[in-house]
Nucleic acid binder design. Structure first.
Lengths: 132, 132
DNA sequence: ATAATTCCTATCGAAAAGATAGGAATTATG
DNA sequence: CATAATTCCTATCTTTTCGATAGGAATTAT
């Protein structure tokens, strides 16, 4: 499974945001998208950290996108919210750990697969996930 | 993570088999490939069930491939040994469960991703994983 | 009879993923 | 200034998945 619930929630929360003109409180977004509120909080905080959304705190606060919806590719959003999009541990974050990396005949295949997936996901944006 | 340890072990055990001319006992293969013996047993049994390898029981028994190495694509081997190669639950085995499938704007993207991955993995065979 | 093997079933343990809880900090507003 | 609505922070819980292990039954060559 490349794409977990967490990543899909992130995309849904962002498309929900994309439909709004003003900053929206998470309570509404989460309810609308059927994402558990507290889980949504955690996800949003990573999106803020990544600079994908902006937050305003306090009463009347909420979240808003920092770009136009068509300016977010699925690849970048998922890269931020998933643990790893990599096909294997061998090409993931702990990559450096493998002592056979230099001779492993399989590694190049996984790398090419990663690239294929990333290219694919770079070809879609938030807009492609919104009902017309 | 699309490709887990289990799938990679399967590929390694099969490439190890591909180097042999005669039926090879699992003990040797597992040792050679550094796969825990008992885990290897479980993996092999699914490969036998899938018809990818043949076993002969009893003393002097062992396993052997049923085809030439270049006749196994990574896609088919991994499809058998991984829980699911699908990008999401939405397109995996439990697919039918989702009540929004017919209207979900995201589903076609996951389907296309699955197809992209499958196509990619169909382009490689066991031979591509063997050192020249 | 024995040794070497595959096969079967059950279970364990660790890690990851999803989800929840409580409360601190911030801010608009009456 | 008090209050209500919000984001932010940290910790924890539960469930599922994944990797691995255990014990022994069945089979077969010698």
């Amino acid at each position: 499974m490349i794409i977990s619930t967490r990543g899909r929630y992130a995309l849904r929360l962002m498309t929900a945001l994309a439909k709004r003109t003003e900053s929206a409180p998470l309570r509404e977004l989460a309810e609308q998208e059927n994402v558990p509120y507290k889980y949504a909080e955690a996800i949003m905080s990573s999106l803020v950290r990544a600079g994908f959304v902006e937050s305003t705190r306090g009463k009347n606060g909420g979240y808003s996108l920092t770009r136009a919806p068509e300016a977010y590719t699925l690849a970048e959003v998922l890269n931020e919210t998933e643990i790893s999009l990599a096909a294997t541990d061998c090409t993931g974050r702990k990559e450096a750990e493998c002592p056979h990396a230099s001779t492993c005949p399989t590694l190049p295949v996984w790398r090419a697969l990663d690239e294929t997936v990333t290219n694919f996901l770079s070809g879609y944006t938030l807009v492609d996930l919104m009902p017309k």
